[in-house]
Design a protein around this nucleic acid. Structure first.
Lengths: 210, 210
DNA sequence: GTCTATACATTGATAGAC
DNA sequence: GTCTATCAATGTATAGAC
């Protein structure tokens, strides 16, 4: 019996198999997208048979959904950590840094997310309009209040946030392009990007002296 | 006979039909990606029958390839127009503006490209490593020389270019997310983004006075 | 040139032996 | 729990009438 909604007891072995499948599925979905991926690919990547995958999950879509749900919380966590009490420029630069680290350490998650958004976010549009929108509103208000107090230069907080998402996730989502362009210089990309973005956001946000 | 490699005479009518199909295919591929798209979808969008599509193109892949080839030149054109003789900050800001206009006016092309890169650029990797890499090297050298002359602040030219691509294409590729977050404020997104990016890149690039 | 009908391959999902 | 075998659906591409 496949573990549908009514999960009872799940043994350690079962949990490990499920992790193994989800990990393989993340590999496959993040590269090929939902429709481009096949259960066969996931099975092969996980070292299991096709029906065995479907013993642990009801359907291909069920695997995909579980991955997306797991993703969203972790993905938004760095934004949530903007502290109103810290030094504004440092807070934002450290947010940029955390996001860039995620692009480096969790590129598959970034691409899974990008794939979903690109195709119109059919499975997470409600989350975007709810959870993400609320969180962004909250953080935008913090940024706005910093601007009003003259602690950072006046900028549109939403587009500041968009630019941070874009510039950092770019290194995961467009990884192939980045490497094609940098070629032999690609090795130090993380440090280079980190330094560039730090420079850019400090220049953008640091208020004029006097 | 399908118009394979050996194209002879192509009438005006034929050219129009081909345009019609390519336009419909761009709609479909840009949303669903290559594998997610079906010939049936393209046919329906173009108001033609499925075999009729395959009368004008050898295969689904042939349509996709033609779209990608048409795309690349137009896509890289704004970068090519960076003039070494203009005012550096203005040149770069106007490049940003042109790219943002393209995200607004050609979002389908942007998403088609993004889809392809996300999946590892199987069909255009050689172009990226050749054409794109050379062009970027050339423009990076121009930016570097501006920095050496003190006309802009010293920044890593490659990561400056990456950030411009990322921030502008974000409005096409992540359009759904942008609209979900901005909600009722979304109407003026282009002007807001344009102003924010102008502010950011001026702050980043304008050298300190004195 | 355009259609209907169809061949053929892929793939999601199930049945049933072990 | 895991496998082989298989079904049903989907989708690419072709054949052949008109």
């Amino acid at each position: 019996m496949a573990r549908s909604g009514t999960t009872k007891k799940v043994t350690r072995i079962q949990r490990e198999k499920i992790e193994q499948i989800l990990n393989a599925a993340l590999d496959v979905f993040s590269i090929h997208g939902f429709r481009g991926a096949t259960i066969e690919m996931i099975a092969s990547q996980a070292g299991l048979s096709k029906p065995n995958i479907l013993y642990y999950f009801d359907s291909k879509e069920a695997i995909h959904t579980e991955l997306l749900e797991n993703l969203l919380d972790a993905w938004l966590d760095p934004l949530e950590k903007l502290s109103p009490d810290g030094d504004p420029v440092e807070e934002i630069c450290s947010y940029v840094h955390r996001k860039l680290e995620m692009a480096r350490d969790f590129p598959r998650e970034s691409r899974l997310f990008a794939n979903e958004i690109l195709q119109g976010a059919p499975r997470i549009l409600e989350d975007l309009k709810g959870q993400l929108r609320e969180l962004t509103d909250t953080e935008a208000k913090i940024i706005e209040s910093w601007a009003k107090q003259g602690k950072i230069r006046p900028v549109n907080p939403y587009h500041l946030i968009f630019s941070i998402w874009a510039t950092t996730q770019h290194y995961a989502d467009f990884d192939v392009q980045v490497h094609a362009v940098l070629a032999d210089r690609a090795d130090g990309w993380f440090e280079q990007a980190s330094q560039f973005l730090d420079t850019m956001y400090r220049a953008t946000l640091t208020p004029d002296k006097g």
